[in-house]
């Protein structure tokens, strides 16, 4: 079973690893390069806890093979804050108590960041549908939606 040499960019850093072609990008992130912020909740693309962006597109890293990441740009939760400065979404999630157990949080933050880059002024309904692939079992989503709306408002203000 020969492994494949993969060269990719993760959160702006060049990263190399050897992947068994059966391994998912999520496996590679977690087990080969030690980025365990992306979580596996289902392995079938139904929960969104493993959300990352691949060349800027929001994907479930459990539904991408590690070998497919070769030559691409991967962004994970670990790259979301700018050094010590949290992204407004991260800050608003803490302020709004938008997490309880926190396991779905990395995936939701990555997905919400992509939403706000795509649509800076989403309605509640748009946020709910965009995040429909990110399951949260603790919060009933209420505070998550409020945190995203608040972060969006702050980002719009910054941009103005």
């Amino acid at each position: 079973m020969s492994k494949v040499h993969v060269t990719t960019s993760v959160n702006g850093d060049e990263v190399e690893f050897l992947a068994d072609p059966r391994e998912t990008l999520l496996d590679c992130l977690r087990d080969h390069i030690g980025l365990t912020g992306s979580k596996e909740g289902c392995g079938t693309g139904d929960c969104g806890a493993c959300s990352v962006t691949l060349d800027g597109t929001l994907v479930c890293s459990c539904l991408v093979l590690g070998v497919e990441a070769d030559g691409k740009r991967v962004e994970t939760i670990e790259g979301m804050a700018d050094g010590a400065e949290l992204h407004p979404l991260q800050r608003k999630f803490i302020e709004h108590a938008a997490l309880q157990c926190g396991f779905c949080t990395p995936g939701i933050l990555v997905a919400a960041k992509k939403l706000l880059e795509t649509n800076p002024n989403p309605t509640e309904e748009e946020i709910r549908y965009w995040l429909a692939g990110n399951l949260c079992r603790c919060t009933g989503y209420d505070k998550i939606i409020r945190a995203v709306m608040d972060a969006a408002a702050e980002l719009r203000q910054e941009a103005a």
Binding site: R30, L35, T36, G37, S38, K39, E40, T76, I77, E78, M80, A81, L86, Q90, R91, F93, I94, L99, G102, F103, T105, P106, L109
Partner: peptide, 13 residues
């Protein structure tokens, strides 16, 4: 909170 919004918090796996 900080650990949990940055992916640093360590869960079972």
């Amino acid at each position: 909170g900080l650990d949990k919004v940055t992916g640093r918090a360590r869960y079972g796996a």
